[in-house]
Design a protein around this nucleic acid. Structure first.
Length: 227
DNA sequence: AAGCGACACAACCGCCAGGCA
DNA sequence: GTGCCTGGCGGTTGTGTCGCT
């Protein structure tokens, strides 16, 4: 049995108070990041070390951008997700001032829906087969991003159908289906070495290149998006 | 005004990988 | 080589807010 990361009965949970935030900030400004396990006690916080780390990384760090995502950031997330999948930390590494949690939340709450609305399967970034069928039966010729609430809800209902878990196999079967190409997603995925050194560490870069190589070797459908 | 559902986001949980003794 | 510790990651849950009825 794994030892818990902290004694849960002696720790606070839930939202952080201003005092707790301040204690954490003060401590890290004095002692630097790291030593998360011992940090709570040293900083006088009744929190789990992991919780402290998360709070710092996702909320308190001074270099965080916060606020709405710009359109180019959205595009970049979509492109990177098409390439990397749910590697939120890698994606966030390409977006200065953004955290993996933030990107993940934004994806799940905004971009996923947006792609579905466009008729794109957010899991494989291809035209949804069920949507194609739906469009075929309803005489819809192309997916547009403008639509009434009812239009929006239908594809999303389709996406959340019991067949959702079959999307990987569906994607695979999509390989030999020309109609699965993205309609209007301009995915110019020219990967360049990150220009800002603060975003991606060496480890991250090697991880990315591993992912990229894997993607290419597998002749993944994703590649078909970038012509 | 109250109830309700959808949405957005913060936080938690469990697992995994790397470092180190 | 092995086991433990720690940091990090991705998935999931909890909760507050907003808009609609």
């Amino acid at each position: 049995m794994r030892k818990p990361c902290c004694d849960k009965q002696d720790t606070n949970k839930g939202a952080w108070s201003k005092q707790e935030d301040q204690k954490l900030i003060d401590y890290i400004q004095t002692h630097g990041e790291g030593g998360w396990r011992s940090l709570p006690q040293a900083a006088g916080l009744l929190r789990c070390g992991k919780s402290c780390r998360l709070r710092w990384i996702n909320y308190l760090r001074p270099d965080l951008k916060r606020g709405n995502f710009a359109e180019d950031e959205e595009d970049l997330i979509i492109k990177l997700h098409a390439l990397l999948g749910n590697r939120w930390s890698l994606i966030a590494g390409r977006l200065p001032g953004r955290t993996d949690n933030e990107v993940k939340n934004y994806w799940n709450s905004h971009l996923r829906r947006k792609l579905i609305k466009m008729g794109v399967d957010p899991n494989n970034h291809r035209m949804s087969r069920t949507l194609l069928s739906y469009q075929h039966h309803h005489g819809i010729t192309s997916a547009t991003s403008s639509g009434s609430k009812s239009q929006e809800s239908q594809p999303s209902q389709i996406a959340k159908s019991p067949g959702e878990n079959d999307q990987l196999s569906d994607a695979a079967s999509c390989l030999d289906d020309d109609t699965c190409a993205l309609p209007d997603l301009n995915l110019d995925l020219t990967m360049t070495v990150p220009s800002s050194p603060n975003s991606a560490s060496e480890k991250q870069r090697s991880e990315e290149s591993k992912v990229l190589r894997g993607t290419q070797n597998a002749a993944s459908p994703t590649l078909l998006l970038f012509n």
